[in-house]
């Protein structure tokens, strides 16, 4: 502890770092982002609780997106069931099994990029591990974050999981066809809660069953490809 009295103790040297702890993930994410931009591709990090309907959103997208070339990576702790579901509707997909990890990171996504010819796609959907916490803090190199929130999860989810909803460029409220059976779910309250955790949220009400919101969702995706979709651009004219 001592530098001056000659007692032989080592000196304590403070080293200022001031770096993000996840800096190495950020670097790999930036590398992925270069890949995506180089290929002229939009990459979507699709997050949400297990059972929020993420895979159903993508199945519906496949049926309704016309000539666009879609691809997907699906993250789960075990099984490649989601990837199989998406292949069945014509989306080339790679399953990423994380073992016990609760989120995807930029390295896992990069490794999966090498497993398929991703550079011929218009849209790459990265379906993250179902979880409303951990995936929010790992940049994957995505063009945009989309969070799927199903109406059956209740209107207070944004207040309970502010970290996740803060990073959402778009919130897809899924399963809205079930609303007539959920008398306690007030959409107004859900919108108000979202506005308290993310500034100017862009929200689309969606149903894979009735088809509500599908057109709007696809238009939003197309807007990302041409640089028109953004978060602030949609908030009642208050674009910045």
């Amino acid at each position: 502890m001592c530098e001056s009295c000659g007692c032989g103790d080592p000196g304590l040297v403070p080293v200022e770092i001031h770096e993000r702890i996840l800096a190495s993930n950020d670097e790999r994410a930036a590398h992925n982002r270069q890949h995506f931009a180089g290929a002229g591709m939009v990459a979507i990090n699709l997050m949400g609780s297990p059972g929020a309907g993420k895979t159903a959103v993508l199945e519906t997208t496949a049926r309704r997106s016309g000539e666009k070339r879609l691809g997907a990576m699906t993250g789960d702790l075990a099984t490649e069931r989601d990837a199989e579901r998406l292949k069945a509707v014509g989306i080339p997909s790679v399953g990423i099994t994380t073992g016990s990890a609760c989120h995807l990171d930029a390295t896992l996504v990069h490794a999966a990029l090498h497993d398929a010819p991703w550079n011929v796609l218009d849209f790459l959907f990265i379906e993250n591990v179902g979880n409303l916490v951990c995936p929010a803090i790992y940049d994957l190199g995505q063009t945009a974050n989309v969070v799927a929130l199903s109406v059956t999860e209740g209107v207070d989810k944004p207040l309970k999981y502010p970290v996740m909803f803060r990073v959402a460029e778009l919130v897809l409220i899924t399963k809205v066809d079930l609303l007539p059976h959920l008398p306690g779910v007030e959409m107004e309250e859900l919108y108000a809660n979202l506005a308290k955790v993310t500034p100017g949220p862009r929200i689309i009400e969606f149903s894979a069953v009735s088809g509500v919101g599908v057109k709007e969702w696809i238009r939003w995706l197309e807007g990302l490809a041409t640089g028109r979709s953004g978060k602030a651009a949609f908030i009642g004219g208050a674009s910045s």
Partner: peptide, 11 residues
């Protein structure tokens, strides 16, 4: 923030 501010080393 998720930052590494500083470390103190015994040198």
């Amino acid at each position: 923030e998720i930052l590494l501010d500083r470390i103190e080393l015994e040198v």
